[in-house]
């Protein structure tokens, strides 16, 4: 077999799957987004861009956009900073580090659905431990999953807990690559630990941070579905209804295939922007380095 044909054969399996299960659905969702379709699919009418118009005039959808933005940005910020800090601590190689590492990494292997279940229990007002400790130490009791703004805090806690190990692993690998003499030199200069961390190490790791921000955005936008579904079901009101949860409700609870497809298209466009940003800025950063 000639070397000219082989690469194409090697690519066939990958592209078959990518085209059938990613590109086709993408095109299909564009098509469906212009229709109104009855639940059993026996009626279908063309409505042009009305599905999109309705969505952007729907306060519920606007709320979902806002909530997603807040939830994702807060979770990303928390995860990034906490992980960076923990990675630095782990890098000091204090006694017991392997044990801490193993324990801190575990949530990576745990699913969002289980993370949601575990935290639902901990935050349960009747049997959960969090409320017990809070009322003991602060005299405070909170209905975590059913009141504002605690429901949002609850899903942020469960999400950050689940995603943090991923970031720690990357930061740890990154910090280990920072030359020791760079760290030492700044110490001798008398620069305080704090300045050293934020002025030298954090900027050095910015390519990693950039990569993690993108990966985290994806985790929080999509995997959050399981956490929301298990913990709050989008409530109270639509207070924790993220875009993906709204999409699920419209598609599979209310059977509004056309409108749900329009939501798919919007998500698709957002993710395309993220991909382009990653490609564009990511490349540039690497060059600067």
């Amino acid at each position: 077999m000639s070397r000219k044909i082989i690469p194409y054969i090697l690519l066939i399996p990958t592209f078959l799957i990518i085209i059938i299960f990613i590109y086709w659905p993408a095109v299909y969702s564009f098509k469906l987004s212009f229709y109104r379709i009855s639940p059993f699919g026996n009626r279908m009418i063309f409505v042009g861009i009305r599905n999109f118009k309705n969505l952007f005039h729907d306060p519920d959808y606007i709320t979902a956009l806002k909530i997603t933005a807040i939830y994702v940005s807060v979770s990303v910020a928390l995860t990034i900073f906490a992980s960076f800090f923990i990675a630095l601590l782990l890098n000091m190689k204090v006694p017991g580090t392997p044990v801490y590492k193993a324990l801190l990494f575990i949530p990576y292997a745990i699913s969002p659905a289980i993370s949601g279940t575990l935290w639902s229990f901990l935050l349960n007002p009747v049997v959960g431990h969090v409320n017990y400790f809070m009322s003991k130490f602060f005299g405070l009791r909170v209905e975590w999953l059913t009141t504002k703004p605690y429901a949002l805090y609850a899903i942020i806690i469960a999400s950050v807990w689940k995603v943090m190990p991923f970031d720690i692993i990357f930061y740890l690998a990154g910090v280990q690559n920072v030359p020791d003499d760079l760290l030492e030199a700044s110490t001798l200069d008398g620069a305080s630990t704090w300045t050293r961390i934020w002025k030298i190490i954090f900027p050095l790791l910015s390519p990693i941070t950039f990569y993690l921000v993108i990966m985290n955005i994806i985790s929080f936008m999509f995997s959050s579905f399981a956490i929301v579904d298990v913990m709050t079901r989008g409530g109270p009101g639509n207070y924790t209804t993220t875009m993906i949860y709204k999409l699920y409700l419209d598609a599979f609870a209310f059977q509004k295939t056309g409108i749900a497809s329009a939501e798919s298209v919007i998500l698709f466009i957002i993710m395309t922007i993220v991909t382009i940003a990653y490609f564009y800025f990511g490349e540039r950063r690497v060059h600067y380095q």
């Binding site: 519920d60 059913t146 009141t147 504002k148 409530g235 109270p236 009101g237 639509n238 207070y239 409700l249 609870a253 209310f254 059977q255 509004k256």
Partner: peptide
């Protein structure tokens, strides 16, 4: 099903003082 969801949303908005 959707009407139900709307009524539940309304109740939750009311209970949360919104």
């Amino acid at each position: 099903p959707e009407v139900r969801q709307i009524i539940e949303d309304a109740v939750e908005k009311m209970l949360n003082g919104e």
